[in-house]
């Protein structure tokens, strides 16, 4: 992303996030949940970004392994870190809602469990990169590829196992008053994701460039 585009996106994101609380506040109260339902405007977009990020990481890793693109590896690393970050958001905001809605902090339902598993796979990816020593970027790329392929299996298996979470239909059947603020928030999160991913990849690019300079200096 060029610098101009970056600031443009940044500006739009700032506006979206600044207005989001207002819109969320204006949105109608959900009949049974009341105020606590508003977590939904924050929780669902974060979860969406988490899953998107897992796929970005998997695809980046595949490009790194099979096309030997070092840039794709740096993108994969940035995406993996974002899976971890958005995962924290999802895994904290979810139980807050669950405590009110279901009376417990945690239930072993498909979506919670598969989110947790996915989050752990990418933490494992980061652990391998951090502690695996030289050459671990290739190994972790393999892990990311397996992690991505694993998403549907985890989801289906946990789904068979048990189910309690509100289904995806919730999003499609939102009352009109909620729909606007919801997609507004999704847009804000997408932009936030793109911005942070760009920044983080850029940092990694600079670091690689710096390494190159060190090597050149030796030559």
């Amino acid at each position: 992303m060029s610098n101009r585009n970056f600031y443009l996106v940044l500006a739009v994101a700032v506006v979206l996030f600044a207005l989001a609380p207002v819109l969320v506040a204006w949105a109608p109260y959900e009949a049974t949940m009341g105020l606590v339902q508003k977590i939904f405007y924050f929780h669902v977009p974060a979860a969406m970004m988490m899953f998107v990020s897992a796929f970005v990481c998997g695809i980046g890793s595949a490009l790194f392994l099979f096309k030997r693109s070092a840039r794709a590896d740096r993108l994969a690393l940035a995406a993996a870190e974002l899976v971890a970050v958005f995962g924290v958001v999802v895994l904290i905001s979810g139980p807050l809602w669950a405590r009110k809605a279901w009376g417990v902090w945690w239930v072993w339902d498909p979506r919670l469990t598969s989110t947790l598993v996915l989050w752990m796979i990418f933490l494992a990816y980061l652990l391998l990169r951090r502690y695996g020593g030289a050459g671990s970027e290739k190994l972790s790329a393999g892990v990311a590829l397996f992690g991505m392929a694993n998403v549907p299996f985890v989801y289906i298996s946990v789904d068979f196992w048990r189910s309690q979470h509100p289904t995806t239909n919730v999003v499609m059947t939102l009352v009109p008053g909620m729909r606007g603020p919801f997609w507004w928030c999704v847009a804000a999160f997408v932009l936030l994701y793109v911005l942070v991913l760009t920044l983080r990849t850029r940092l990694e690019d600079q670091r690689a460039a710096l390494e190159d300079l060190y090597l050149k200096l030796e030559d």
């Binding site: 598993v117 494992a124 391998l128 992690g147 299996f153 289906i156 068979f160």
Partner: peptide
Amino acid sequence: LLPVLLYPITVPVIIA
């Protein structure tokens, strides 16, 4: 690292 990587990925096997 082997168990750290292996268990999350093989969750579907364990459940099934």
